[in-house]
Amino acid sequence: MAIQSPSLDLTAGAGTGVRLTPVAITRGYWQSVARRLRRDPVTLVCGVVLLLVVASALAAPWLGLSDPYKTSMIRRLYPIGSPNFLLGTDELGRDMFSRLIYGGRLSLFMGVTPVVLALLIGGFLGITAGFLGGRVNMLIMRIMDVFYAFPSVLLAISLSGAMGAGAENTLLALTLVFIPPICRVSESVTTQVRGFDFVEAARASGAGTLTIVRVHVLGNVLGPILVYATSLISVAIILAAGLSFLGLGVKPPEPEWGLMLNTLRQAIYVNPVLAALPGVMIFITSICFNLMSDGLRAAMDVKA
């Protein structure tokens, strides 16, 4: 057997030297996801509805709505469709339409913020546990299991109760509630991706751990983790509203859907439809987040 010199130069024979590739028009992964999404009417409708809710909540001060805090003893519990009060007035005579739009600000904020915070913390912990495995994994996941043992509603209520009412404490409590499930999902997808041969091949190339995580792991786990987090937003909105309803969250007179549902309780026999309106907003928003999460999951599930 002839022994050849193993000093190779793969670029030597290329002649033209280094050629830079133009940024080609590729049928990339995200493009195919977008194409699938465009063909999914349910997800599209949910996206549009959410966009409307979020945009109107953000733009509320500039929409020329009446003051959501202005009470009036004369015009209490006007029915839906009253002149000047499209959706009637609440038990203190405040404009329901204005309060529902303004209410989205707090309700959405209270729903999205804890999930985002939990995503950062739980995602980091989960990906670390999943990629490193072994004792680190054991330590992180056993701690998560302790929290996981409680139903999220109970955990949120007891944490809020222990820390006292208020928006900040609600945010903190909900963040703590969502860290374990996000950590768990992150850990399991990362463990799965870590087992793929391409990660093994990357390790075989001698690349550092951080480089491998950045190039080969994150791109494959962030999608599923984000989809899962989106589905949690609906839970967070309901939990935040529930805490407010129980008097553990936002304090009156802030417009917030859960709190509005609580204060309108007394009006349930007078004007049940009106009293249900904040609940309808909670329902629509959370179901849209949920359906959109499902749609995203389906669209991102591209197999060869």
Binding site: D197, S205, T211
Partner: peptide, 24 residues
């Protein structure tokens, strides 16, 4: 490796996959 599909990162183009090790 045996599994040609599992050994390639589905999110990277072929040239990105090949350039990874030399860049590292």
């Amino acid at each position: 490796f045996q599994d040609s599909y599992a050994s390639l990162n589905p999110r990277l183009t072929i040239v990105e996959t090949l350039a990874f090790a030399p860049k590292a």
